[in-house]
C-alpha cells in the first residue's frame, strides 16, 4: 500500500475539492428537495383527487426508476430536445441546462423530493384526529390548523425517516461522478486511481470520507431528534 501518494498535496487538494462539491450538491439538493416535498406532500394529502393522482404518479415513477437513469435523462436527454437547444444559448433559465452541476442538482432534487414527499404525506395522514378536533374546537380555520398543528407535528414525526433519506442522498451524490467534468469525492478517487493505478488506496480513502460524513449526519440527526421529539418520550419528573 502506498498511502503517501494519497497524502501528496495535489491529491489531497483533489479530494478536498471533491468534498466541497459533494457537500454543495447534498445541501442544495436537500434544500430544494425539501421545499418541493412540502408542496408535493400537501398535494398528496389534498382533497382534489386529480392533484393526488398526478403527484402520486410522479412519486411512483421517480421511486420506481434508478437515479442514474434520471441523471442521464436530464443531462444527456434534455440537451437533445430541439426546444431546449434553441434556448440554452441565451434564454434564461434554459442556459443552466448546459451545466453539468445544474443537471446533477436538478436530478437529485427531484429525486429526493419524491421520497421525502411520501414520508411527509404519510405523517400528515397519521396525525392524531384528536389534535385536529381540538384545533377546530378552538375555532382555527383549516389553513391555521395546517400550519400550526398538522405540519409542525408531522415534520417532527418524519425526522427519523428523513435522517435515513439524508444518508441515502449523501451516498447518491456519488452518481455525480457519472456526469463528465464533475469533481465530487468519487470522481476525485477515480482520477487518483487512473493517474497512479492505486485502486485500494484511492477508493478506500473515498470510502473513509463518506463514512465520516455519514456518522456526522447520523450524529446531527440524533441530536435533532432528541430536541424535537423530546415531547414524545417519557416525561421526566
Amino acid at each position: 500500500m502506498k498511502w503517501d501518494v494519497i497524502f501528496q498535496p495535489e491529491n489531497l487538494a483533489l479530494y478536498g475539492q471533491g468534498i466541497l462539491t459533494t457537500l454543495h450538491l447534498l445541501m442544495a439538493s436537500l434544500a430544494i428537495g425539501a421545499v418541493l416535498a412540502l408542496g408535493f406532500a400537501l398535494a398528496l394529502t389534498s382533497r382534489w383527487r386529480v392533484l393526488r393522482a398526478v403527484v402520486g404518479a410522479y412519486t411512483y415513477v421517480v421511486r420506481g426508476t434508478p437515479l442514474l437513469i434520471q441523471v442521464y435523462l436530464i443531462y444527456y436527454g434534455l440537451g437533445q430536445l430541439e426546444w431546449i437547444q434553441a434556448r440554452w444559448d441565451d434564454i434564461w433559465p434554459w442556459t443552466y441546462f448546459k451545466e453539468p452541476f445544474f443537471c446533477a442538482l436538478l436530478a437529485f432534487s427531484l429525486n429526493t423530493a419524491a421520497y421525502t414527499a411520501e414520508m411527509l404525506a404519510g405523517a400528515i395522514r397519521e396525525t392524531n384526529a384528536g389534535e385536529i378536533e381540538a384545533a377546530q374546537a378552538y375555532g382555527m380555520g383549516s389553513v391555521a390548523i395546517l400550519w400550526r398543528i398538522v405540519l409542525p407535528s408531522a415534520m417532527r414525526r418524519t425526522l427519523p425517516a428523513y435522517s435515513n433519506e439524508v444518508v441515502m442522498m449523501l451516498q447518491s451524490t456519488s452518481l455525480a461522478s457519472a456526469v463528465p467534468s464533475m469533481l465530487d469525492v468519487t470522481s476525485a478517487a477515480s482520477r487518483v486511481y487512473s493517474k497512479f493505478y492505486l485502486p485500494f488506496e484511492a477508493f478506500l480513502f473515498a470510502a473513509g470520507i463518506y463514512l465520516v460524513a455519514t456518522f456526522a449526519l447520523v450524529g446531527i440527526f440524533r441530536l435533532a431528534e432528541r430536541h424535537f421529539l423530546a415531547y414524545l418520550g417519557p416525561h421526566k419528573t
Binding site: 444518508v167 449523501l170 451516498q171 447518491s172 451524490t173 456519488s174 452518481l175 461522478s177 468519487t186 478517487a189 477508493f203 473515498a206 470510502a207 463518506y210 463514512l211 455519514t214 456518522f215
Partner: peptide
C-alpha cells in the same frame, strides 16, 4: 451502509 454502492 455508510459507503456509497458505487465506491464499493
Amino acid at each position: 451502509r455508510g459507503i456509497p454502492d458505487l465506491v464499493l
